[in-house]
Amino acid sequence: MIFGLSIGPEYYLALSALLFTIGAGGLLIRRNPLVMFMCIELMLNAANLAFISFGKEMGDLGGQLSVLFVLVVAAAEVVIGLAIVVAVMRRRPKASVDEVSVLRG
């Protein structure tokens, strides 16, 4: 019976919503900056899935192109974010964002 099931956009949107929710929850719960970045990646992937799902349903290539741009922005964001993490960790070798509460040093 599962073979005959046609997968419409609503399935992908539900999966995208679940992925985004897990990512957002992880961002709120975890205190390791690296894991928080991974949760941001999860949320970006959920958005990408929604983009491509809509793009296919509308017969429009713009969804895929948006995903391409999101990928580039995600890569740049990760590079800058990890550089900031490295710069902060060098001064304060504790892997928790709660201790980084001031901009100075």
Binding site: I7, E41, N45, N48, L49, I52, G55, Q64, L71
Partner: peptide, 18 residues
């Protein structure tokens, strides 16, 4: 999922870049 949605190029980019 990208392959399932016929976005073949982005599936490859997803694996390579991410």
């Amino acid at each position: 999922h990208f392959i399932n949605l016929e976005a073949y190029f982005l599936a490859a980019v997803q694996v390579i870049v991410y």
